[in-house]
């Protein structure tokens, strides 16, 4: 019983990790940089979702339109993904593009700085008071023979799997996806194919940020109280999942996100829960000892120049 109950919680947390990990993984494989501001983009996405849903709810209350809660949630996810993708593109344009030929350490430091700017910017804008994500759908709990599943948890897992599947298809089947795979292998040659690097970089950030926004809203549905630092820890964990999944692998990052959720949920079943993170990340490290490139890391050319 407890096992299945944990399984369900693990799937929910895995969903958050997976969606955030995808953005880390894409940016890393295509632009050779870790966007350490990505956890904070998740936070910004959650707040944009808060703003959009609050606005939609109050418009509905004023009688502008009558929409069921679930539809408002769907609209919130779509609009917020769209808006947050611009945040990602701005971060790329302002923060990373000027550093494309700079040492990677500069880009890492810039990422941390951007994260701090987003956190403190949020504080400055909205103040220290925490905001509460509006409740858009009623919680229904299903009792499956002693295991309790809510409609929200089911929705969270389905949305995250659907989005990561959609990204996978995008990368496999479209010409932008093909260009992304080519960039992951050998960044320097891609312009010779007539592919505009800057637009590809913007696209990569846009996609990653949109997925992070989706994660932020799903998070807000499950844990409605938002705060400006909510992205830090979850961002680091998703980063670990991205590494574990293997460079640039959508399937890898998704599976690793869920695996991380499982490890975190199941470790306290056996060990004292105060040791949870210690043991969970020891397991992750051990996996990386045996698979240093993660689960599905694809080969790439180490040449950085033409």
């Amino acid at each position: 019983m407890v096992f299945f109950q944990n399984l369900i919680n693990a799937l929910q947390w895995g969903s958050f990790y997976a969606l955030i990990a995808l953005g880390y993984s894409m940016v890393y494989s295509i632009l050779m940089l870790f966007n350490f501001a990505h956890g904070d983009i998740f936070m910004v996405g959650a707040y944009i979702g808060f703003g959009v849903s609050t606005a939609l709810v109050s418009l509905a209350a004023m009688g502008a339109f009558a929409l069921p809660g679930w539809l408002i949630l769907v609209l919130t996810i779509i609009i917020s993904m769209f808006l947050t993708s611009f945040v990602g593109m701005i971060v790329e344009r302002v923060g990373y593009r000027p550093l494309r030929d700079a040492p990677r350490a500069s880009a890492a430091i810039t990422g941390l700085m951007i994260g701090i700017i987003l956190e403190t910017g949020n504080l400055a804008l909205l103040g220290a008071e925490r905001v509460k994500f509006p409740s858009l759908i009623e919680t229904t709990t299903y009792d499956l023979g002693g295991v309790f599943v809510t409609n929200k948890k089911i929705m969270i897992v389905l949305v995250s799997i659907t989005l990561s599947f959609a990204l996978h298809q995008f990368i496999r089947r479209t010409r932008w996806g093909m260009a992304m795979r080519a960039m992951a292998f050998d960044f320097a040659v891609v312009p010779l194919m007539g592919v505009p690097l800057n637009r590809m970089a913007a696209l990569t950030f846009a996609l990653g940020s949109a997925l992070a926004a989706a994660a932020g809203i799903l998070f807000g549905v499950a844990y409605p109280v938002l705060d400006p630092y909510m992205g830090i820890l979850i961002g680091w964990k998703a980063f670990v999942a991205a590494i574990l999944g293997g460079r640039g692998s959508v399937v890898g990052a998704t599976l690793a996100g869920f695996l991380l959720g499982f490890i975190e949920m199941f470790v306290p079943m056996i060990f004292p829960s105060t040791l949870r993170d210690f043991i969970a990340y020891t397991i992750v490290l051990l996996i990386l000892v045996f698979r240093p490139h993660g689960f599905f890391g694809e080969a790439y050319s180490a040449r950085l120049r033409l």
Partner: peptide
């Protein structure tokens, strides 16, 4: 400098981006 992770056809198609 081929894209070794792409197929022959994909390499040719990418060049028509």
């Amino acid at each position: 400098r081929l894209f070794e992770n792409l197929t022959v056809t994909e390499n040719l198609m990418l060049a028509t981006f």
